[in-house]
Write a protein that binds this DNA or RNA. Structure first.
Lengths: 223, 223
DNA sequence: TTTTAAATGTAACATTTGTTACATTATCTA
DNA sequence: TAGATAATGTAACAAATGTTACATTTAAAA
């Protein structure tokens, strides 16, 4: 059990033995769940740290009218709702239900705080996790703030180039997937890509994109 | 000096005396800055915790083309870039410059970690700050994900009602401000508001909005 | 009160994106 | 290789929003 935990981001750097010693000093329990089981309601107070040990969970956002909006899936081993255990509104942002059978580790908030004090490595790990969430969301907002499809494409490609690619960028996603990621429709994406090809900015084949005019690509995000 | 700090979110719950004792055990220094001075470059590694003691700072986002995009202002006393001291990309997300004269407290990251271990109250405060950032950004994304102007208006108004208002909502912002907040143009906002008035959903006067048909307002966000 | 500035209403038109439908091409599988 | 399936190109049209310009109303200042 504990060797699974030692490979989770929260307990990175701690051996299974160290974990056993640590967990002898704090309250915690394991809980099995069945596929389809509801684990938490949206709005419910978060007073426990939850770690997904095995299995797969999903979070459903629900709008004001009661309809299910989006789905986020969680793989093990990972912490659940890490950024909602503390902070002004420590409430579940989603309905949490199980896609498969599995197991979670539950630590009451009070004990979780004790654990962070007892073991600085876990404290730093946890802060890294929450900070990472904030940084991820921050980047997502930058992207969502882009108005036109041209801007989204330009930003996406420049981001890929920043991450090491040269002017020949390998795209692992289909246009259909990209359109979903961008929150737009597939024909609209295709239309703009063809437009950019005709303007000599790039050539877009199935598996890769070649940047022909980097200046023009940058210009799209200027002003 | 330390009594200012004890009123900051990071040191909430600690007296000035406790802070003095705490700071005797960790490296730190104060630094004066002048209006207009550049305090940090975007992309620069964040290896120090920075607390704004007095004065006012601004953060400027810069796009790929080198143009300044958005401005965020920071008041004292407050922690600067709290969610970027840890996490996978611990780099400044903005250019940080001073609007007024003032003073910052700087704590090297290593010492900041020691401080969190030494004083669990500061640790919990810091985690609350970072979690709060993540939660704020999460809410912002929900809003940015709304596609139409009608949805944005409906969401905004329902949010106000959730925060205690009844069906008569006091609006402190002008339509011009709201449009900027929503990232749309003022005539477009005005147009949709008038449409919703004609549909009997609400009446919008300068200082307040009266909800006439809550069901219809909810329906806008449904499906 | 009069004047001025800000906020809002409104309209015509342009631009962008979505919708729908179908053709064409690539990729996978039997 | 043949057929099925997914991915992409493309077009006509609808819907949503931006742009620009000006009129009207309200609030603030002189």
């Amino acid at each position: 059990m504990y060797h699974v935990l030692s490979s989770s981001p929260l307990f990175r750097g701690l051996s299974a033995e160290e974990l056993i010693t640590l967990f002898q000093r704090i309250n915690h329990y394991f809980k099995q769940f069945r596929s389809g089981e509801m684990l938490a309601q949206a709005g419910e107070n978060v007073d426990k740290a939850i770690l997904l040990i095995s299995g797969r969970l999903q979070g459903e956002m629900v709008d004001f009218a009661g309809n299910s909006l989006k789905i986020e899936e969680l793989d093990s081993p990972q912490m659940v709702a890490a950024a909602f255990l503390f902070g002004p509104q420590s409430r579940f942002p989603v309905y949490l239900s199980a896609i498969t059978d599995g197991k979670i580790l539950v630590i009451p908030k009070k004990d979780f705080i004790s654990m962070l004090s007892l073991e600085p490595r876990v404290m730093v790990n946890y802060i890294n996790i929450v900070s990472g969430k904030a940084q991820f969301l921050s980047g997502k907002i930058t992207f969502l703030s882009l108005k036109t499809i041209r801007e989204k494409i330009a930003y996406f490609l420049l981001q890929q180039m920043k991450n090491g690619a040269n002017d020949l960028i390998t795209i692992e996603k289909t246009q259909t997937n990209l359109a979903a990621l961008f929150g737009i429709t597939r024909p609209s994406l295709s239309r703009i890509i063809l437009e950019m090809e005709n303007q000599g900015i790039l050539t877009w084949s199935r598996e890769s994109v070649k940047i022909l005019d980097l200046a023009k690509l940058n210009q799209i995000l200027g002003k």
